[in-house]
Nucleic acid binder design. Sequence first.
DNA 1: CGTATTTGACCCGCGC
DNA 2: GCGCGGGTCAAATACG
Length: 312
Amino acid sequence: MEPAWVDTTLDLNINPCFRTNKAMKREFEGDVVESAPVKYESGVLVEELNRVSAENKKLTKMLTVLCEQYYSLQHQFMEFVNKNPEIETAAAATTSSSKKRKAECEDYGANMIGFSGNTETSSSDDGSPKTPKDCIKPKVSRVQVRTNPSDNSLIVRDGYQWRKYGQKVTRDNPCPRAYFKCSFAPSCPVKKKVQRSAEDPSILVATYEGEHNHHEHHHSPPAEISLSSNNNTPSSNTGSGPVSSAPTKASAPTVTLELLQPGLGGDETERAALQIDAPAIQQILVHQMAASLSRDPNFTAALAAAISGRAV
DNA sequence: CGTATTTGACCCGCGC
DNA sequence: GCGCGGGTCAAATACG
Ligand SMILES: [Zn+2]
């Protein structure tokens, strides 16, 4: 769980010298005959190539798993953020260096309903499309992904399968906004909107809406990360949730999050530092891991390479 | 030929 | 009522 593991992996990936030395050493004390240096060298090289190839494959697999875990973690992180409006305010205050703060303040309902409630409830609903608009917003989560504008037009690679069903140009953004719908399960109501940031075209803003009621269409990792945000998800209100819109202030963790604008370094991703005063220490670790992951340009580059190279 | 994407049309809420 | 802006539909098209 500690970020050191990630660093080690990345170092292995980009700098296989140590591994090579070890392998060579082992080869030396193996079936080595010094009388034929060329043949020995060739054999060692071939074997080393195979080894490196296998290792590369293994690392790619690990990276894929890590990527999936990262996405899952990111998803849950923004879910966590959505439950605390203060974080959003602070983040908007810091990140909006020049952009206007829209203060749209989408009501963070924080109620986990809508995942078994609004899909099939009104079965005997005749033609009248009139629905009681009791603000049954299932869930709205916003996430910003930093990508290379030349690589991909719009992000889709987040572990799920999306079907594009619309594209519109918005008023205050020259970049169009794309509308996607989860197409894996026909009963999955999850939608997502993707639009580039107006100022920084390398940042894609994705807005997820709803919650998946199925697994990812391919082998999902067993999620060794046991974040699970157990503090404020009683998970007993999933059925009929007239839950309070805000978590109880008494037991809610006080979270302080600050996001730094990447613009200065140009190569530096946004950094998230947060401070939790709660019995959930795991969340701190998880968030630190997320921060370190998103902060590390090596990881970003490797992630981009892995995604673009081994497209799902 | 089946499926996914494109893209203009259509709908709907909202402010004037 | 009307215009505007955002969201969705669906016919046409592209793709494998
Ligand atoms: Zn889904």
